[in-house]
Nucleic acid binder design. Structure first.
Length: 129
DNA sequence: GCCATGACGTTCC
DNA sequence: GGGAACGCCATGG
């Protein structure tokens, strides 16, 4: 397994209970800024018996990136609620409150839900046209 | 080795 | 505030 993955997992394991981190932040802490997609890839490859709290990793919008239809998304939401993480109306977590490390979000509000838009819509649009 | 895809992010319009 | 576009890194075909 690549060192990046190991770093990613290690970082995720370091996320305290009841706190959440973003893919981009994990990627940065893992030593690969901008490799947020890779973080998601690494987490998707996690075995069920893994000790990595993947559910504590959310996107920059503080939302669960998984499809609502995905079983894991439900599991993730449940696990976070169990740890005391509260979801604001709309299914978003207040990163300023539950974000880890806190200092990372102090300067970076990560305010907008722009990330949710993403480039997927482009592809979808292409198909529709 | 090149092309396409994906649990993402940031900037521009 | 919402939508579209581009970039980033790693994997699979």
């Amino acid at each position: 397994m690549n060192p990046f993955y190991h770093r990613i997992y290690k970082v995720v394991r370091h996320i305290p209970k009841g706190r959440v981190a973003t893919y981009g932040l994990v990627a940065r802490l893992a030593g690969r800024p901008g490799a947020a997609r890779t973080v998601g890839w690494a987490l998707s490859a996690l075995p069920d018996d893994s000790d990595v709290p993947w559910w504590r990793v959310l996107n920059a919008a503080g939302r669960i990136s998984l499809s609502g239809a995905d079983h894991n998304s439900v599991l993730q939401r449940a696990l976070l609620l169990r740890e005391g993480v509260k979801f604001a109306p709309g299914g978003a977590v207040n990163l300023a409150t539950f974000g880890w490390p806190a200092e990372a979000y102090d300067s970076a509000p990560a305010a907008h839900t722009r990330a949710a838009s993403s480039r997927r819509s482009r592809r979808l649009k292409g198909l529709r046209t």
